[in-house]
């Protein structure tokens, strides 16, 4: 029986190439506002994809992803403000610290199942937040101004965001098109059955968790390079995870395209509602609730129901002629 990932057909290559060309050339034809919007979309897409990789594929619903945003942001702040090193090193440090931290906390939180995992991740993030507030090394709860951000042009920031978005997307596509990704999807659909078929549950979940943490950390550094100010209550605030959940839920959990659509909607909605700051989160919350009630698989779920749209070809198709042959030989007997 042949199981194969969807071929990268000409249509797929062309649509991806057009998207890449448009995004790379954006700063040269788009205005400042458009560039800024796309900077945000790309970064939010990255964190949405990472949350989705955990929740939609590995079955790990985390409410503690903000821990890695904060760690990433602080890595950048410490490198550029305290150690006066080139800020790009901050991204490296963000990835390293995030992976190490993820590795350490994976020991306790992976012993927790389902909802306990969710609570555990949240507690970890809250604990880190409280700890940073009373830690002199990171300037208590005052935090840092990230001054290097002010010398950065909008275009440079855009390309950093583009890089982060690209890393996130490429990582997810590579993971899901690989055999490992097939195991992940099997694990999501039926944990027990996939384990019997040889999927190593613990290892698979851990790899997903580490990849997701590393890239969330990098994205956190980029987000704080853009925001240019970090303090514990905001850096480790649950609002980050709220956005990730929103992006994944609206776009469609368990799809790669979902968080892309979700991030576009999220950023645009937030900009539109910018002048009504209190309303924006209220409306986003209501939209998310209604979306789960009406279309639990998100916008991608609606699109997929109409026609099997799959931009990155991560779905496997089975050659059904084999079954027909089997049935015929069985009938002949």
């Amino acid at each position: 029986m042949k199981k194969q990932t969807g071929k990268m057909t000409t249509v797929r290559w062309i649509s991806l190439a057009v998207a890449v060309v448009l995004l790379v050339s954006l700063p040269f034809w788009g205005g400042d506002y458009i560039v800024n919007i796309f900077t945000l979309i790309l970064m939010y897409m990255a964190i949405g994809e990472m949350w989705n990789l955990l929740a939609g594929y590995a079955g790990l619903v985390s409410l503690g992803a903000q821990a890695f945003i904060g760690l990433g942001g602080y890595s950048l702040a410490m490198i550029s403000q305290v150690f006066k090193l080139p800020f790009l090193l901050g991204f490296l440090l963000a990835a390293v610290i995030s992976v190490l931290f993820a590795l350490i906390i994976s020991v306790p939180i992976f012993s927790m199942k389902d909802v306990y995992f969710t609570i555990g991740t949240w507690l970890v993030a809250e604990a880190v937040c409280v700890f940073f507030q009373s830690w002199a090394f990171v300037n208590f709860n005052v935090g840092y101004n990230i001054t290097v951000a002010r010398r950065l042009s909008g275009t440079a920031m855009y390309f950093i965001a583009f890089g982060v978005g690209l890393i996130a997307l490429v990582a997810v596509v590579i993971i899901l098109r690989s055999k490992f990704g097939l195991g992940l999807m099997a694990m999501r659909d039926n944990e027990a059955a996939s384990e019997i078929r040889g999927v190593k549950l613990y290892r698979s979940k851990l790899i997903c968790f580490l990849v997701s943490s590393a890239i969330t950390g990098i994205a956190g550094a980029a987000l704080y390079l853009n925001l240019s100010y970090i303090k514990p209550t905001v850096g480790f605030g649950i609002d980050w995870t709220v956005s990730m959940v929103f992006i994944a839920v609206i776009g469609g959990m368990g799809t790669i395209e979902g968080p892309i659509i979700g991030a576009i909607i999220f950023v645009i909605l937030r900009q539109l509602l910018y002048n009504f700051s209190g309303f924006s989160m209220l409306i986003l919350g209501i939209i998310a609730v209604v979306m789960i009630l009406v279309a639990p698989k998100g916008i991608m779920g609606l699109i997929n129901k109409k026609k099997g749209f799959d931009l990155f070809g991560v779905k496997r198709t089975v050659d059904i002629s084999i079954f027909k042959e089997d049935a015929e030989t069985a009938a002949a007997k």
């Binding site: 619903v61 409410l63 909802v115 959940v245 209190g278 919350g285």
Partner: peptide, 18 residues
């Protein structure tokens, strides 16, 4: 249970902001 949890999460955000 996870879907229901996410619904309540959305409700929580809505309540806080309201």
């Amino acid at each position: 249970a996870e879907t229901a949890m996410l619904v309540m999460f959305g409700l929580s955000i809505a309540i806080q902001n309201a």
